[in-house]
Amino acid sequence: MKYIWLDCDPGHDDATAILLAIQCPGITLLGVSTVHGNANAENTNNNAARCLYAFAAPSHIRVCPGATKPLIRAERHDPEIHGIDGLGGVEGLPHASHPGVQTRLIDHGAPIRALEGMAYAVRQTWKEGQGHKVTMISSGPMTNVGLFVSVYPELLDGIEEFVFMGGGVGIGNRSAAAEFNILCDPEAAQIVLDAPVKKTMIPLNVTHTAIVTRAVHARLLSPAFGIVAPPGPAAPGATLPRASTPLRHMLSTLIGFFADAYKSTFGFVDGPPLHDALTVAYVARPELFACRRYRVDVELAGAHTAGETVVDVWNYRQCDDSWGRNGKNCMVAEKLEVDGFFKLFLDCVARCDKVSPLNQ
């Protein structure tokens, strides 16, 4: 069993990470915190609560609101990809004012802040070595995680691993060199990379292989749909099956908006990549990934390369065996078993189908 804390900025693909965190076998979700990123902090907080409700998270899980801006830099959002509120185009997901969503936003009348929630979860789970270590997952800018590392160094022994979706090896997506999550708060990312704890980076090079194709989308809508759109130029326009449940309809609209955004912005014609869901998939099923250990740093001062993850693939930097400031500090995912990932994803949707309040 893996005990995880999820820090996120929902975001369409963050929503799928939340679904997996709740429904993956072998995963115990301890809590969720939110951060600025794909939308402003108020929207990401509300969106996380909406997802917790829709995906039937255990009733004690509440959203812990976190940083509203980066450590140093001006905040940035991504409405071109995610819409103004972070979950543009989604149908069937209750509004933040829904009573079931509201219960996810407060705890005993007030929200618990991200750092407090993180620290409490680690203390209560680790129990000073008598319990279990916590894997901390980040699917957004790492402001909250960087603050946790800085404020609670005594709790780092209770962290098994930091897993983050972010960065790229030689590629970016929100500048010529930088990936969005890292670009939003590169200083926080460097703080985490310097922490003396194992890290695993899921970069764009891998997430861009986790494409929700027409065939996957059809199976998402209807598990019984065995014949997908024919191959060839006509396939992208082929009719998809009707959603078999309200939950699946909601997820289809989420994927559909994301697909349109990735097609118009980045030219992805086969479907959108489910970046953030891979973080939870890695924790639940590490055998689906091929990883290699490298020294990774973040460019903080480059006029054209700020936010770039500099992966020392040729071992130019002399490093020790630690995971910290002077070591080979990060496992970097290099390959994904794509079919295995989507089987896991669709299995989690099927599990959620049985319990989601959207279907009742």
Rank of each mutant, 00 (worst) to 15 (best):
Cys184Met: 14
Ala224Asp: 15
Glu287Val: 08
Ala21Ser: 14
Glu91Ile: 14
Ala229Thr: 04
Ile137Met: 11
Phe342Ala: 08
Leu288Met: 14
Phe341Trp: 07
Ser322Thr: 14
Arg242Ala: 14
Ala21Leu: 07
Asp7Val: 15
Ser150Trp: 00
Leu52Lys: 07
Val192Tyr: 10
Glu75Trp: 12
Leu344Asn: 02
Ala49Thr: 01
Asn43Ala: 13
Ala238Cys: 14
Cys291Gln: 10
Asp320Cys: 02
Ala54Thr: 10
Arg242Lys: 13
Val216Asn: 03
Ala178Pro: 04
Phe268Cys: 06
Ser222Phe: 02
Asn326Phe: 10
Asn43Cys: 12
Glu128Ala: 12
Val163Tyr: 06
Leu52Phe: 02
Gly237Ala: 15
Cys51Met: 11
Asn205Cys: 06
Ile227Ser: 10
Ser138Glu: 08
Arg248Gln: 07
Ile202Arg: 03
Gly92His: 11
Pro111His: 11
Ala234Tyr: 02
Val35Arg: 03
Glu116Lys: 08
Leu30Glu: 04
Arg325Leu: 12
Gly168Ile: 07
Leu346Lys: 01
Glu160Met: 01
Thr16Leu: 14
Asn43Val: 01
Thr143Lys: 08
Val338Leu: 01
Gly158Cys: 02
Gly232Ser: 07
Cys51Ala: 13
Pro153Ser: 04
Met201Arg: 06
His217Asp: 09
Gly88Ser: 11
Gly117Ser: 12
Pro246Ala: 06
Gln190Phe: 11
Asp7Pro: 02
Pro65Arg: 05
Thr16Pro: 00
Asp312Gly: 06
Glu116His: 11
Ala303Ile: 07
Phe345Val: 03
Ala281Asp: 10
Val134Arg: 07
Gly146Cys: 03
Gln130Pro: 00
Pro153Cys: 05
Tyr262Leu: 00
Arg50Tyr: 01
Cys24Met: 15
Tyr53Thr: 01
Val192Asp: 12
Ala41Lys: 12
Phe341Cys: 09
Lys335Asp: 13
Ser222Tyr: 00
Ala238Phe: 13
Leu20Thr: 01
Ser59Asp: 15
Ala277Cys: 08
Phe268Gly: 00
Ala67Pro: 06
Pro236Ser: 04
Thr245His: 05
Trp126Glu: 07
Met201Cys: 05
Val169Lys: 13
Gly88Cys: 10
Glu161Val: 00
Ala114Phe: 09
Gly340His: 12
His36Val: 14
Leu204Ala: 12
His36Asp: 05
Lys199Leu: 07
Asp194His: 04
Gly31Phe: 01
His208Ile: 04
Asp7Glu: 14
Glu299Arg: 08
Thr279Leu: 05
Phe148Trp: 08
Ile159Met: 04
His275Thr: 02
Val163Ser: 01
Met142Arg: 12
Thr16Glu: 05
Val134Pro: 11
Ser59Lys: 13
Ile4Val: 15
Gly92Leu: 08
Leu19Thr: 06
Lys199Ala: 04
Asp194Cys: 10
Arg76Lys: 15
Val338Thr: 15
Ser175Cys: 03
Val311Leu: 04
Met118Thr: 04
His98Asn: 09
Asn144Lys: 01
Met331Ala: 08
Asp194Met: 05
Ile255Val: 15
Val212Met: 14
Ala110Ser: 14
Gly340Tyr: 11
Phe225Trp: 14
Leu300Phe: 03
Ala39Lys: 02
Gly158Lys: 01
Val296Asp: 06
Ile112Val: 15
Asp276Arg: 08
Ala284Cys: 10
Leu221Glu: 09
Leu19Arg: 10
Val310Leu: 15
